[in-house]
Computed example of a mutant assay.
Amino acid sequence: MADDQARLGEGQQVVHTVTSARRNIAAGLLSGVLVLTVPGTASATWPPSEGSQGNTKQSGSSSAGTLISKVTYSGSVRANGSGGAVQPVSDWTPPACWYEPRSVAEFRNYVEAMYTETINTPGQANYAKASVGQFRDIYKDGKYKDYNEDAADEGNWWVAVQNPDRLNDPASWECSELPFWVANNDNPGVPQAVTPKILAEAAYAAIRLPDTEVTLAPANNTKVNLPTWAWLDQAEFREVSVTASLNAGSLNIQATTVAKPVALKLEPGTGDAETYPASGVCTLNSDGSIGEGYAKGKADLTPPCGIRYLRSSGGGVYHLKATITWQISWSGTGGAGGDLPDGTFGSTQDIRVQEAQAVNR
């Protein structure tokens, strides 16, 4: 069964297959080993916000053969796989997978659709049919009865889903439990159970950042030993945010992740250059801008943010790299919040440097 193509867009729902669950169905059943999570116990830290869980409302929505993530994203959201993604400055990465709740109707419809599709597909291998049949039996007439229909208002099925930005990441195997039942307001008992923080971390990966092209004076063509001023306008480089929301089963939570530009690093593209300041790092001004715009009368001044090239680029160009550091924070349902690792995003600009022409008098 082919996976749905996940796409991110402003206010658009993320749709993707619970691939890890299917892998584990096949691996577990064929090996004769089935690991089923025991429902969690009530915990003072669960649910993750006051009033976020209660009686289950059955929506019954499903897609034939697939379960889809109920997480939606809004704000400055980039298309899945496109550019503009913030890069963490450390080895931290957003979650590759997590667990979400599903109503009895949603989970039953998913399993039955998967079973029907597998059994009726021409040429389908017998072991695949046997595996999906055994999986269905667990929930229909085995460990559980009729998908826990009699307890539909008392809890939810929890299933593994993948972060659409990390569909092919081996880390998605970490969510390896088969779907399991959890009573309302009980802790699911798995470390990857979705919380506002996990939503915030997923939103981190979904943020679309503006292209990092600094304004230069002179623009793109400069002279040897002539200070080149560089700056970022406050109106163009302001904070951006993405809100990730989940309304699934009886869980209703959200988190907003905010990225704020705090510094610009200039790398001239050659060792024959000096930066202002010497570190090449221009910090945020009090008005939210970075650097200072050039104006007539400043020719003899040293720019607070800029470059001075010491050698001509000849017939070519230097590749100036401009990288912005973004400070990341989040806030979520129930007053939760905090900081996430800083991120960077940069791009290059071509700079042509010419020899200054002497004037004979």
Score class of each variant (00 low, 15 high):
S61R: 15
S61L: 13
S62Q: 11
S62V: 12
S62C: 12
A64I: 09
A64C: 05
G65R: 03
T66W: 00
T66F: 01
T66S: 14
L67K: 10
L67R: 08
I68Y: 03
I68F: 01
I68H: 08
S69V: 01
S69P: 08
K70C: 08
K70V: 02
V71N: 05
V71M: 10
V71H: 00
V71D: 07
T72R: 12
T72Y: 00
T72P: 11
Y73C: 10
Y73Q: 04
Y73V: 10
Y73F: 15
S74Q: 12
S74L: 07
S74Y: 00
S74M: 08
G75K: 02
G75R: 04
S76P: 01
S76I: 01
S76A: 15
V77F: 02
R78N: 07
R78L: 07
R78F: 02
R78C: 11
R78G: 13
A79S: 12
A79G: 10
N80D: 05
N80V: 05
N80Q: 11
G81M: 06
G81K: 08
S82E: 15
S82L: 12
G83C: 05
G84I: 09
G84F: 06
A85F: 01
A85T: 09
V86I: 15
V86R: 02
V86A: 15
V86Y: 00
V86N: 06
V86W: 00
Q87L: 13
Q87M: 10
P88D: 04
P88N: 04
P88G: 05
P88Q: 04
V89R: 04
V89D: 09
V89S: 06
V89T: 14
V89W: 01
V89I: 14
S90R: 03
D91V: 03
W92K: 09
W92M: 13
W92H: 05
T93L: 11
P94K: 02
P94S: 15
P95K: 05
A96W: 00
A96R: 02
C97A: 15
